[in-house]
């Protein structure tokens, strides 16, 4: 045992916390997913009934599909905007600093406030877009509206990540490129983007896993409606568990969410080479 490293004792609080609030509930949920429980009385083991039902449940399938769509759409909308604005905001000019601080305002609002705000703005009779498209009332549009609201909320956060990372790119790289006569665009392509690679990975993992488990925004904004147009998987789980009180079946959905989330972040890590991350800067 190396005397340089901190004793394993230091990890105890973290492990205990994880065991009690993550691992233990997860095991309980796996157990519950094999029971029928209406939260009255005691859970009754029913074998794989919930799982068989899950395979058969068209609504669950549709909500998985909606969740994936929401995930991909929010990534596609957020990443380019956050990247470009972040790099732009990394400049030291005063005007940029002022504009960025305005731009970061949504970061200060709670999710609930944001969802209520947009809900009021898009009210069809008294909102800001009366006579316009039914942003929350048209089943064909509602999911995209959700993507927009989520993007509005989270782009500033990801911009902040990119801003910090872009500022850490050594100026010497740009200076060398300038001497070689590189254009702005090729500097962005050949210096900024490669240097931001790991930030892109981090931000993407946060975005993808974040939108996989998004719940509060959708609950307040649309409650999964109109009809089931925005009923994503976490919401389907909530409605099954806490409105229908089918705790067993809701637990099965929860397990699917855990598996999807874990698989997703593992896949992104592997695919992006995040594990072998090493500094690309001189002197390391």
């Amino acid at each position: 045992m190396s005397s340089q490293r901190p004793s394993a004792w230091y990890a105890v609080p973290a492990f205990a916390f994880f065991a009690l609030f993550a691992a233990l509930p997860m095991l309980l949920v796996i157990y519950l997913s094999f029971t029928a429980w209406d939260s009255l009385g005691t859970p009754r083991l029913n074998g794989g009934e919930n799982w068989a039902r899950l395979l058969d449940d068209a609504e669950a399938r549709a909500s998985v599909w909606r969740t994936l769509l929401l995930m991909v759409m929010s990534w596609l909308v957020q990443t380019p905007i956050a990247l470009l604005v972040g790099v732009w905001a990394a400049g030291k000019q005063r005007s940029r600093a002022v504009l960025s601080s305005i731009f970061f305002l949504p970061l200060l609002l709670s999710t609930t406030a944001i969802a209520l705000l947009w809900n009021a703005l898009m009210e069809p009779n008294f909102g800001a877009f009366v006579g316009g498209p039914l942003f929350l009332g048209d089943p064909d549009i509602a999911l995209y509206t959700v993507v927009l609201v989520i993007s509005w909320q989270f782009i500033p956060f990801h911009t902040l990540l990119y801003q910090g990372a872009a500022r850490a790119v050594p100026p010497s790289l740009y200076e060398a490129a300038t001497i070689d006569g590189a254009s702005r665009v090729s500097k962005f392509r050949h210096i900024t983007l490669p240097q931001l690679r790991y930030t892109i990975v981090t931000s993407s993992v946060l975005m993808l896993v974040g939108s996989l488990t998004t719940f509060d925004t959708v609950l307040i904004l649309t409650q999964g409606g109109p009809g089931t147009a925005t009923r994503i998987l976490p919401l389907h789980m909530y409605i099954t568990g806490f409105k229908g009180f089918e705790m067993g079946y809701a637990s099965a959905i929860a397990v699917v969410l855990v598996v999807l989330g874990t698989a997703l972040s593992l896949a992104v890590m592997r695919w992006s080479g995040f594990r072998s991350m090493s500094s690309q800067q001189e002197g390391s």
Binding site: M122, E123, P124, G137, P139, G225
Partner: peptide
């Protein structure tokens, strides 16, 4: 537009 009309303030009653 009923699908996005709520019952709370500013909704159907208004």
């Amino acid at each position: 537009s009923f699908a996005s009309v709520g019952y709370d303030a500013g909704g159907a009653s208004t």
